[in-house]
């Protein structure tokens, strides 16, 4: 075997709540073409459905969104004699 690498990509959405609490929702395999308008359009959809985990405060808006790409390299130890 040889060393192998694995690349993953996630979209991290930060939801803001009325009491100031934040929560991040991570989604695997995000589209490349996501725009700010796509995220803002979900404000009204999330309102009343999710709430903060501290005081169960209502959802206010999506505060931020970012895509994170990470690469993990797995070393082949079978040849390390």
């Amino acid at each position: 075997m040889a060393d192998t690498t694995k690349t993953t990509k996630q979209l991290k959405l930060v939801a803001g709540f009325i009491d100031g609490d934040d929560r991040t929702i991570s989604l695997d395999n995000p589209r490349d073409s996501i725009t700010a308008a796509d995220i803002s359009a979900m404000d009204s959809i999330a309102a009343g459905v999710i709430f903060g985990d501290k005081a169960e405060a209502g959802f206010m808006r999506w505060k931020s969104a970012k895509t994170v790409e990470s690469t993990v390299k797995y070393l082949d130890l079978t040849t390390a004699d």
């Binding site: 979209l11 959405l13 929560r23 929702i25 989604l27 695997d28 395999n29 995000p30 589209r31 996501i34 796509d38 995220i39 359009a41 979900m42 959809i45 999330a46 009343g48 459905v49 999710i50 709430f51 903060g52 985990d53 169960e56």
Partner: peptide
């Protein structure tokens, strides 16, 4: 997706999940 409002109806929850998934290739 945790911390869903227990008072939210199923349709609203489904719509949110569909919207979130629309941001992915899944």
């Amino acid at each position: 997706i945790t911390d869903i409002n227990p008072n939210a109806d199923n349709g609203a929850i489904k719509t949110l999940c569909q919207s979130l998934n629309s941001l992915t290739n899944n």
